[in-house]
Amino acid sequence: MSYEIQTWVRVAAYLGGGLAMGFGAIGAAIGEGHTAAQANIAVSRSPKNSGDIFKSMLVGQAVAESASIFALVIAMLLLFTNFANPTYITVAVMISAGLCMGLGAIGSGVGSGYPAGAACIGMSRQPGVANKLTTNMLIGSAVCQTPAIFALVTSFILLFTNFSDRPVNPTWAAILGAGLASGLGAIGSGIGGGLVAETSCEGIARQPLCSQSVTNIMLLGQAVTQTTAIYGLLVSFILMFKFMPASDTISSAMALLAAGICMGVGAIGPGIGEGVTARSAVSAISRNKDATASITRVMLVGQAVAESTGIYALVIALVLIFVV
């Protein structure tokens, strides 16, 4: 059973489009559902502020939605772009770009829903700080979206780089690995960043006077949370841009695919864990502002230890790419 290369490319493009939109729809829907649930609770507590709460819910949901809109864009591109001179690498590119954007949208969609929900609850408690809450929510959700943007960038580079001068054999696996590293690596950082932003909105509603230090520590905690997504992006860039010499063994291809899987999956846990840490740190600071310095120090030490397994995954991925 043999088909022409055009047939395989179309098969891969349609499959990739389905994967992009299917996975990409998961996160945003969960996040927006969470926001709406919290908004309902908020309105029931404080019906007279329903206007502000409703507005905040819609703005927060719009930010969470952007992750799945990225996935929609990639799915459309995969369905309707005609790629000239297809090779078997193009087949891998289609599937990889779809998987990358689909998986990459999960974390950011879920994560962005948390701060929006907490902002709605906060407005029912402290209507006076609605503006501060909205600002903090938007900053927090914007940081949550960065992993999805990393995945979008990787998908675009995959789709619009000309790989046709590369040898088919290890390159197909490098392409698939690049998509998985960036896509899977975005999940943990997106969710983790959302957890941090959630409690910072809660904290500002509880104690509006400390909003400045809460926002600062939120950004610090989120920045550490993003590091594992950046490792994923780094590994996928190496896999895309390093010229892999031609080989006729399956093991050289599997090493590159395994590097992508290792970094992508390995980034999930540290991303979530560091987010959990920063969430509690922000909450503790909003309760006891005087202890900010020692809480921040312990947060950073704890996050550094949680980061270690992400670094092991990075090391194994780099060994798989460069050593074996």
Binding site: S251, L257, A258, G269, Y312
Partner: peptide, 30 residues
């Protein structure tokens, strides 16, 4: 090929639990 894939999967999946768990420990310390 199987050894390479196994190494990647081992370290990738193996990093999830400690990452989340250590994060929780640090959270309660904060």
């Amino acid at each position: 090929a199987a050894a390479f894939l196994g190494a990647g999967i081992s370290m990738g999946l193996g990093a999830i639990g400690p990452g989340v768990g250590e994060g929780m420990a640090a959270a309660k310390a904060c």
